[in-house]
Simulated assay, not measured.
Amino acid sequence: MYECFGSQPTAWAGKTYAEIEEIAKQDGSILILPVGSIEQHGYHLPVSTDTICADALAHEGSQMVFDDIPIIVGPALWAGNSPYHVNFPGRIDVPFSHLVEFYEAMAASALETGFDALLFLNGHGGNHNAIGGASKAIGLEHPDIDVLAMTYFGLAAGFIDEIRDSDPGGMNHAGELETSLMMHLRPDLVRDDLIEGTHLNEPYTHAYDDMYEGGPLSVHRLEEEYSETGAVGDPEFASAEKGKDIFENLCAELTLLLEEIYEQNTE
């Protein structure tokens, strides 16, 4: 089960300032900042789903390389941009421009300790452009630091078809993937008796249709236009077994990335 705040061996929040500095000063040191959101995830998942998944992956993947790579995971940044969920309760949102500035300020402060690389690990699709913009600005301000950003869904692209049972459109907001992950990471927070979603049938050919399907067209719609419950996809296909399989594969992919980052900063 997902560990509590600060208890992981890679947690910034559980260390003294001297311990953080010792990690940062080592050659090839990496800081991961997990990024999520607080927003509705249908009737069956908590509003913290995006933050929980990103934070859990950051810590588990880091722990797999902790003995060989100087690495630390900052406190999960729960603030996100979710204006399309405006008509659903439970959202704590930050305007896009403020969010970019917030990410920049948080990273700039943390990087003063002396890390060689920074990775934003995002769990909310609506943050994708914000972390991209922030990472570019941070990179310009810190030219000697490798600054990277990614949304964790993308790490599953190479293996997800071997695990999923839903058709394209089934892995979206609170769909098969996120529900499975939460069943594995935090089963105590999943309302099994309320699992319900609406399969996404996007009318535009070149628009997003699934976490792993779709084209370049961006279409603005409010979430209730896709689903009355707020869950978009097929959470009925989710299981804890799938969640475990997906999470373990995600961790393996993340460790490969962390090893590459380390190698790039120790050459």
Score class of each variant (00 low, 15 high):
residue 181 L to K: 00
residue 242 K to H: 06
residue 23 I to F: 03
residue 172 N to H: 04
residue 221 R to W: 09
residue 236 E to I: 02
residue 150 M to P: 03
residue 136 K to I: 09
residue 179 T to N: 05
residue 107 A to C: 12
residue 221 R to Q: 08
residue 134 A to Q: 08
residue 21 E to H: 11
residue 184 H to L: 03
residue 261 I to K: 07
residue 130 A to H: 09
residue 27 D to W: 06
residue 138 I to G: 12
residue 24 A to D: 11
residue 11 A to Q: 07
residue 32 I to W: 04
residue 195 I to A: 02
residue 106 M to R: 10
residue 74 G to Q: 02
residue 112 E to W: 07
residue 101 E to G: 06
residue 195 I to L: 03
residue 181 L to H: 01
residue 221 R to A: 11
residue 11 A to F: 05
residue 61 G to V: 01
residue 131 I to L: 07
residue 111 L to A: 13
residue 8 Q to G: 08
residue 20 I to K: 10
residue 174 A to L: 00
residue 231 A to C: 11
residue 162 E to H: 12
residue 214 G to V: 02
residue 91 R to H: 08
residue 225 E to D: 10
residue 81 N to F: 10
residue 141 E to L: 11
residue 114 G to Q: 11
residue 149 A to T: 02
residue 14 G to D: 11
residue 191 R to F: 05
residue 80 G to C: 02
residue 228 E to Y: 02
residue 185 L to M: 06
residue 58 A to P: 04
residue 67 D to H: 08
residue 168 P to W: 01
residue 24 A to Q: 11
residue 215 G to D: 00
residue 243 G to S: 06
residue 104 E to M: 10
residue 265 N to G: 09
residue 244 K to F: 12
residue 171 M to D: 10
residue 81 N to P: 05
residue 18 A to I: 11
residue 130 A to S: 14
residue 111 L to R: 09
residue 75 P to Y: 03
residue 252 A to H: 09
residue 14 G to Q: 12
residue 125 G to K: 01
residue 49 T to W: 03
residue 258 L to W: 12
residue 128 H to F: 14
residue 64 M to I: 13
residue 66 F to S: 09
residue 148 L to F: 09
residue 151 T to F: 00
residue 264 Q to K: 12
residue 10 T to D: 14
residue 177 L to I: 02
residue 206 H to G: 05
residue 93 D to L: 06
residue 150 M to G: 09
residue 229 T to K: 04
residue 228 E to V: 06
residue 125 G to M: 01
residue 98 H to T: 13
residue 97 S to F: 06
residue 215 G to R: 01
residue 211 M to V: 05
residue 117 A to G: 04
residue 239 S to N: 12
residue 221 R to T: 05
residue 158 G to H: 15
residue 28 G to W: 05
residue 221 R to E: 07
residue 13 A to C: 08
residue 214 G to E: 03
residue 214 G to Y: 02
residue 104 E to P: 08
residue 45 L to A: 01
residue 37 S to P: 03
residue 260 E to C: 13
residue 121 L to P: 13
residue 151 T to I: 00
residue 236 E to T: 05
residue 220 H to G: 14
residue 76 A to G: 14
residue 9 P to M: 13
residue 255 T to H: 06
residue 20 I to F: 07
residue 23 I to D: 04
residue 86 V to G: 06
residue 211 M to S: 06
residue 157 A to I: 10
residue 12 W to V: 14
residue 86 V to K: 05
residue 197 G to N: 02
residue 173 H to Q: 00
residue 59 H to Q: 15
residue 160 I to S: 09
residue 7 S to G: 06
residue 252 A to N: 09
residue 16 T to V: 10
residue 41 H to R: 01
residue 1 M to H: 12
residue 13 A to I: 06
residue 130 A to N: 09
residue 192 D to Q: 15
residue 20 I to C: 14
residue 193 D to F: 04
residue 78 W to I: 05
residue 170 G to L: 01
